[in-house]
């Protein structure tokens, strides 16, 4: 089922992934869930062992002392990454609101990294391409949210 839960972005009616820092335990299972979901085999062992160097997750867990939380792409209404992208690799789906990126088109100029105010676009060092969250197109609940053992990530409309 393809994103049946997502409504068009008009009126911000879009589910997004939000963090709850008071219950994030810094386990980074969200990152692992993301890596597995975006691996060819979708198997945790294969995702890590058959791919070198280690693939990058599309969310970023920050840790500072006891504080931790995941920062996820907001699939912004006015996506700074898209506006900055010089190759046209980034596009916002008018239907789902998902801000997607086409790695084929990406030229690794890092303009999106410079522009995204959430700092959630990473470099995929090996390929010199930017990697960003695609909200797990094709899933009802993004993999990171599903992987979180402590409900520190929620997928909801705000």
């Amino acid at each position: 089922m393809r994103r049946a839960t997502l409504k068009p972005p008009e009126g911000n009616g879009m589910k997004r992934v939000y963090q709850k820092e008071d219950v994030c335990i810094g386990c980074r299972l969200c990152e692992i869930g993301c890596i597995v979901e975006h691996s060819p085999a979708k198997d945790v062992v294969k995702a890590f062992r058959n791919v070198s160097p280690r693939p990058e997750p599309r969310n970023i867990v920050e840790e500072r002392g006891p504080l931790s939380f995941s920062v996820n792409c907001r699939h912004c209404d006015e996506p700074a990454c898209l506006h900055a992208c010089i190759s046209g690799a980034i596009a916002k789906d008018p239907l789902t609101g998902i801000v997607g990126q086409d790695p084929e088109k990406c030229v690794g100029c890092w303009s999106c990294i410079m522009a995204c105010p959430f700092g959630v676009i990473r470099k995929n060092g090996a390929q010199s391409k930017a990697v960003k969250c695609d909200l797990c197109a094709g899933r009802t609940i993004p993999a990171c949210v599903e992987a979180c053992p402590n409900r520190a990530l929620v997928f909801e409309e705000r």
Binding site: I60, A80, C81, W110, C112, I113, M114, A115, C116, P117, F118, G119, I121, R122, K123
Partner: peptide, 14 residues
């Protein structure tokens, strides 16, 4: 090192 430099641009904008 320019990772997450967008956070700085966000601080400027905001």
């Amino acid at each position: 090192r320019i990772d997450r430099s967008g956070i700085l641009s966000g601080l400027i904008r905001n």
